[in-house]
């Protein structure tokens, strides 16, 4: 069996049937999609740009899921990070780049960690299901962002619902001119490797995974389960917040109402499809980035509605689930 590749094949097949049904040529549509994702240097760069937040979020979520805590809130944590990063990028305009860039990224990471940690705290302290609280915190972060960019943080000129641009010195350098690919992509690879080392090559990671496999066994082994869950939420939230900061400093340079097209939710799929292994996340992140990036070009050049990509991504997950990719990540944290 070859679960992940089979899952992708099944999804493309289902997508193909839908395409036929709607009167498009599946082969032509997929060919265009392929070219759109990888067919030129620029397309490749755009795919990697879309993969960047997915790899970041997916690596963080791998830590959470391995620790047995279901963080569904990466989307909200990304927003929290984007807000803080924007704020830092607007306020500290006087600093040089080598200070400002780390500061802005740290601000995003901290803010995401707090937003994620909040759900962890509610879980540990009050037994609140993190699945429900993180979903609520998603909505709250998105609504709060909408309030901030239409109210207190709205740009001074123009009065459109967006903030002012962040300082030039806060922007991430580009690494593959003339494309937009920025250093954030390398950062995401670094984070993936770091979370891999944390999870699989450190004693802390071993403790976290033990908590994930069996909280009771972990407790018996003298591991502080509550602290572990809190740490896992803070780490995954922090990395998602970093993804928000990277979007702002690498691409948009300011905050808008809808800064993310659902990266936080795609990130869940990316982590799970990679079996919660951060190194695998690099590949699944690029796969999902390519699907999104390719579907846009498919719409431009073959006029196929890009919503099709949601179906394809969903079916990838479903068939991977059916093929048993995720069975081992099953934990019984709900008993916690």
């Amino acid at each position: 069996m070859a679960p992940p590749s089979a899952a992708v094949a099944v999804a493309l097949l289902v997508g193909g049937i839908l395409l036929l049904f709607a009167g498009y040529s599946p082969l032509k549509a997929y060919a265009v999609m392929w070219t759109g994702a990888f067919g030129s240097l620029n397309n490749l760069a755009e795919t990697l740009l879309k993969s960047t937040p997915l790899i970041l979020i997916g690596s963080g979520l791998a830590v959470a899921f391995r620790s047995g805590i279901w963080n569904i809130g990466a989307e909200g944590q990304l927003y929290a990070g984007a807000v803080a990063a924007t704020l830092a990028g607007i306020v500290f305009t006087g600093l040089p780049a080598f200070l400002l860039v780390p500061l802005v990224l740290m601000a995003g990471m901290l803010s995401g960690a707090i937003w994620g940690g909040l759900a962890g705290f509610l879980k540990v302290r009050f037994g609140a299901s993190e699945i429900v609280t993180t979903i609520m915190l998603n909505f709250l972060a998105i609504i709060a962002t909408s309030y901030l960019v239409t109210g207190p943080m709205i740009e001074a000129v123009g009065k459109f619902p967006q903030t002012a641009q962040i300082a030039d010195a806060a922007r991430l350098p580009r690494i593959l001119l003339p494309t937009r690919l920025h250093v954030g992509f390398l950062l995401s690879l670094g984070v993936a490797v770091a979370t891999y080392l944390l999870l699989f090559k450190s004693s802390r990671g071993y403790a976290l995974r033990t908590v994930g496999i069996s909280p009771d066994a972990a407790r018996y082994a003298g591991i502080n389960v509550g602290a572990g869950l809190l740490a896992a939420m803070a780490i995954s939230g922090g990395v998602a917040g970093l993804a928000g900061a990277v979007e702002v400093t690498g691409l948009t340079f300011r905050l808008y109402q809808e800064i993310s097209p659902g990266y936080g939710f795609d990130g869940i799929a990316v982590a799970l499809l990679a079996n919660n292994n951060p190194i695998g996340v690099i590949f699944t992140g690029i796969l999902f980035g390519a699907l999104r990036s390719g579907s846009e070009v498919m719409q431009m050049n073959a006029q196929v509605p890009s919503v099709l990509v949601s179906v394809i991504q969903g079916v990838v997950l479903l068939s991977a689930a059916a093929l048993g990719v995720f069975r081992i990540t099953q934990t019984n944290n709900q008993e916690e």
Partner: peptide
């Protein structure tokens, strides 16, 4: 083994993607 197995397939897929990307480029 599952982890390894999955990873291996992902690596293969990605390698394929990159090669054809280069070709496409």
């Amino acid at each position: 083994f599952t982890v390894k197995n999955n990873l291996w397939h992902l690596v293969l897929i990605s390698l394929g993607l990159f090669l054809s990307a280069l070709a496409g480029g």
